[in-house]
Design a protein around this nucleic acid. Sequence first.
DNA 1: CTATTCTTTCACTTTCTTTTGAAAGTTCAA
DNA 2: TTGAACTTTCAAAAGAAAGTGAAAGAATAG
Lengths: 168, 168
Amino acid sequence: MKLAEAKAQFIQSWGSLGAQWGINRTMAQIHALLMIMPDPLSADDIMAELNISRGNTNMNVRELINWGLVDRVLIPGERKEYFSAEKDIWKVATEIARERKRRELDPIIKTLNQLQEVEGDMKDKHVKAFRDSIQNLNKFAHQSDKAINSFVKAEESWFYGTLMKLFK
Amino acid sequence: MKLAEAKAQFIQSWGSLGAQWGINRTMAQIHALLMIMPDPLSADDIMAELNISRGNTNMNVRELINWGLVDRVLIPGERKEYFSAEKDIWKVATEIARERKRRELDPIIKTLNQLQEVEGDMKDKHVKAFRDSIQNLNKFAHQSDKAINSFVKAEESWFYGTLMKLFK
DNA sequence: CTATTCTTTCACTTTCTTTTGAAAGTTCAA
DNA sequence: TTGAACTTTCAAAAGAAAGTGAAAGAATAG
């Protein structure tokens, strides 16, 4: 397989993977592109490679920066901004975990806590079923929270970081 | 908070959580509804509770059954089909993990394996960057695969199952 | 200061997903 | 075999999400 072909296939696969994860396709594609390029790219490079508009490029690059997956790079003597992606996939995974936890798990925990305060007689089986479900979910959510925190911290701390390297 | 209100809020939260996960909102809502109901519901019950059409109900219930998250329940002497959801959230989590692995991770591993065979001179930095990225991703994908398998198996095997209960 | 180069915004368009509901299909008791 | 009760399908409509590109906004070199 030729490089150009392989690149195209990788970008398209990564794109559809992103789509299944509620991440928009273009955003995932830009990320894929930046991951496999040895040097940073400008907005124009990205537009040209992926055949997308300037506005779209800008929006999605900005979003990737918010996620902490892409960095702005300034090349001395150049007016343009360039962009590069984190290439260590473990870092990518922890960034994503951190971000999704913040956006999804934290709010659901908040909601579940509120919902535990539902009024009603525990002898009513509807009330009982509801409370039981919420309580289980809440317990599970807290476990997940802990698990994700350990995973995210593993990268950051020297000790776990070193330990992790054994697995990579 | 009254039960009806709490129920409505839970269903709507679970629905938007699902949406962020690339699962369609109605499907997540039906799942939420069935989780908190003490007894199985019929298609008509679901339609009435969520204000959705018959077709929509049918499609999404079927999909939930495919995922293994909902079961058809036959009530003796009744013509209608009833539906109930798995209420043990750990089982739900492992079912989802299993299903997503099958749909997402397995194909990406297949693709990555193919892409490793890209031709080209390793002295070309584009080729080198590409191969390095793919190799890292592949390593990561295999690690994830193992991790998910252990998680999924934990529920199934008696030994891990018992161990897991300590955490619940 | 101002011309140039680059970035951001946003109203509009296009594309993709979901939902609807009527019609067709199935099942089964009588 | 009939018809009542229930389920499934599917084409069309509605709705949501993503993408475009021109115009406005910044930043900087000269």
